[in-house]
Design a protein around this nucleic acid. Structure first.
Length: 387
DNA sequence: AACCACGGCAACCGCCCATTT
DNA sequence: GAAATGGGCGGTTGCCGTGGT
């Protein structure tokens, strides 16, 4: 049975909002709130708009403290870092950037950041390829295939199919693959809460299926109603594991349109406690997964620790999927400075670690990697499953 | 001046999921 | 338990401004 339309499409105005409509919507919500029912809202105000359209207009444009444009370098870094970590979960990313909406970030990524990355990557890869060519000529050996070996999961062979760099002039270390359906196993895992949980556990979060257990609540929110979690991705990037580095620690009440962390439309570990002025309050609990912000180095899974999980596989893993993104993690980053420099640690980790590779399969495929026709190895998926 | 291509962004669409009936 | 409903999300579309020819 099909889903009933949320409104009468024939009698609903579409297209850009007029200042009058904006004023009506804004003044009503500021005075009365949304009432928790967007569908009924336009009728109350006398707007010939779909409720969803009203919601979108409010969240993305009219709501207070919205910032438009002018993304700072720090914000760039956060967006890119999170994209690398979790893919196109724009609402989650937006939750880490006060005043930014998921739509804004999505647009910004699609129109600017992605191109920036790809442009940089192309440049670096061409340079790297030149270097390799020269090396090959000098030594008289062909080790490029090994260096750039990729697992051709499209091959009918069960074993990896080593592909040669020269098969792809622009993406030398990436496989040339026809669009390939996911394996049924992987298909099941996509958009699966369990896999997301795995991912976030790897990234340092902790989950609980029993939200009623206070022990599983975020440390900083135990026993209290919170607006939004402040620590979503407590990634300790110090390879020694002795220093805790909170990458995305925000202070204050983040009134993002989509905060707190949301997967699907479930707040992770938080239930909706109420609304005021269109801003949703959340409280810990419910049967949802609970992501815990951790601040203790003893409990935080560090990137270095993850990398150590399988150094050999990491060494052999061919998925140099993020080659060229170093600039995102250079030591000059104001938001992510570390003892060792965010750059080397993070990029080398991502390059080599099958954990990240497999975690990022979905997001990457939808983003950067899809454009490069890059598939990650079955080995990576298997490795994740084993964790 | 006219046309075209391109980029940015607001808004829409379809789907998913949780909640309610 | 099934169907209906509504909120929310990510992907896509289309308009508009700008720059190049």
């Amino acid at each position: 049975m099909g889903r009933a339309p949320c409104c009468d499409k024939a009698n609903v105005k579409k297209g850009p909002w007029s200042p009058e409509e904006d004023a009506k919507l804004k003044s009503y919500i500021e005075e009365h709130g949304t009432g928790g029912n967007w569908i009924a809202l336009p009728q109350k105000i006398g707007l010939k708009r779909c409720g969803k359209s009203c919601r979108l207009r409010w969240l993305n444009y009219l709501r207070p403290n919205i910032k438009h444009g002018g993304f700072s370098e720090e914000e760039d870094n956060i967006i890119c870092s999170l994209y690398i970590s979790i893919g196109s979960r724009w609402s989650i990313i937006a939750a880490q950037l006060p005043g930014r909406t998921d739509n804004d970030i999505k647009n910004y990524w699609n129109t600017r950041l992605k191109k920036k990355l790809l442009g940089k990557q192309r440049k670096d890869q061409l340079a790297a390829r030149k270097g390799l060519k020269a090396q090959e000529t000098k030594r008289g050996i062909n080790n490029i295939g090994m260096i750039n070996s990729m697992v051709d999961v499209n091959s009918e062979n069960t074993g990896p199919n080593i592909m040669n760099i020269n098969q792809n002039p622009y993406w030398p270390e990436l496989p040339i693959l026809a669009p390939q359906p996911y394996s049924s196993e992987f298909e099941q895992r996509r958009d699966n809460h369990a896999s997301i949980r795995k991912l976030l556990i790897k990234l340092g979060g902790r989950f609980s299926d029993d939200g009623d257990n206070d022990n599983n609540r975020p440390i900083h929110d135990v026993g209290s109603t919170v607006h939004h979690p402040n620590h979503l991705f407590p990634i300790n990037i110090n390879p020694s594991g002795t220093t805790t580095q909170q990458l995305y620690e925000l202070s204050g009440d983040v009134t993002s349109s989509s905060a707190p962390a949301v997967f699907g439309n479930s707040a992770v570990g938080f239930t909706q406690a109420g609304q005021h002025n269109g801003i949703t309050d959340y409280e810990p609990g419910s049967s949802n997964m609970l992501l815990q912000g951790q601040t203790s180095s003893s409990t935080t899974t560090t990137i270095a620790q993850l990398a150590e999980l399988d150094e050999e596989k990491a060494y052999n893993d061919p998925a140099q999927v993020l080659d060229g993104l170093e600039f995102l993690f250079d030591g000059n980053s104001t938001s992510t400075s570390t003892t060792y420099g965010w750059g080397d640690q993070m990029s080398s980790f991502i390059y080599s670690n099958p954990l990240i590779a497999s975690h990022d399969y979905e997001g990457m495929q939808r983003g950067i990697l899809s454009e490069q026709e890059c598939l990650l190895s079955d080995q990576s998926s298997t490795f994740l499953e084993a964790q």
